[in-house]
Structures are given as structure tokens and as C-alpha cells.
């Protein structure tokens, strides 16, 4: 499988999971939330300062259909994380050493 094709497939899997499969996720509280309720250590929990964000709680504000709203928010999230993460990693990466065919005498010193 070519690298390009593999990347495309990997992205497609993430988009399908966030955009479609997420609708069928369990709506029960997660482990932390449940234990916090049971043991009462959520007594002083505060509302989220971003609770009025247009994407708050994994929905798109103004989209009524739950399946569409949740799926759309997931797709947007995958895109934002990919751009933010990919951008960061692209800036951080070491340069000019990914082609093994090219002689890279400077690689060792760059690594240090």
C-alpha cells in the first residue's frame, strides 16, 4: 500500500468513526463521571466556561437532527485535530532526512 493511500484510508476510518459510528456510542456516564457521582466528589463541579461554544458537547449549534449534529461535530473535530496536530508536527519535524537514498552527512549533527 502506498503511503498516500494508507494516509487516505486512515483518515477515512477516523471520519467514519467520528461522523457516523459515534451516534451509536454509549450515552452512559464514563468511569470517572460515574465514580464521581457515586462517591460524591462532583459536588463542586462547575459549568464549562466554553459551554456556549457552537460545538459544545459534541453537537453543532443550530442543527436539530441529533445524528447530523453529532456526526458533523465529529467530522469538524477530526479536521481541526488533524490540521492543528499535523501542522505542529510538520513544524517540529527534522528536515531533509526522510529520503534514505540521499546522502545525509548532516543528519547526525542535526539530531544532537
Amino acid at each position: 500500500m502506498t503511503t498516500k493511500r494508507f494516509f487516505a484510508a486512515f483518515l477515512l476510518v477516523s471520519l467514519v468513526l467520528a461522523g457516523i459510528v459515534s451516534f451509536y456510542a454509549s450515552a452512559h456516564p464514563d468511569g470517572l463521571e460515574k465514580v464521581a457521582e457515586d462517591k460524591g466528589f462532583n459536588a463542586k463541579e462547575r459549568d464549562h466556561s466554553m459551554k456556549d461554544s457552537p460545538l459544545a458537547d459534541y453537537g453543532v449549534k443550530g442543527v436539530g437532527d441529533a445524528r447530523l449534529s453529532g456526526g458533523l461535530s465529529g467530522v469538524i473535530g477530526v479536521g481541526v485535530v488533524l490540521l492543528a496536530g499535523g501542522g505542529l508536527f510538520w513544524v517540529v519535524r527534522r528536515r531533509g532526512s526522510s529520503a534514505p537514498a540521499a546522502p545525509a552527512p548532516s543528519t547526525a549533527s542535526q539530531d544532537a
Partner: peptide
């Protein structure tokens, strides 16, 4: 050059998978 985009895709995958309770 090859693993930087891969890492971005891995982060996106983690985000997607975290939606799946």
C-alpha cells in the same frame, strides 16, 4: 517528512475514537 503527517492522522484517530464510549 513521512511520520509528521502520520502523527497528525493518529491524533485525529484518537479524537474520533474518544467519541466512541
Amino acid at each position: 517528512d513521512r511520520t509528521a503527517p502520520l502523527a497528525g492522522l493518529v491524533a485525529a484517530f484518537v479524537f474520533a475514537a474518544q467519541m466512541l464510549n
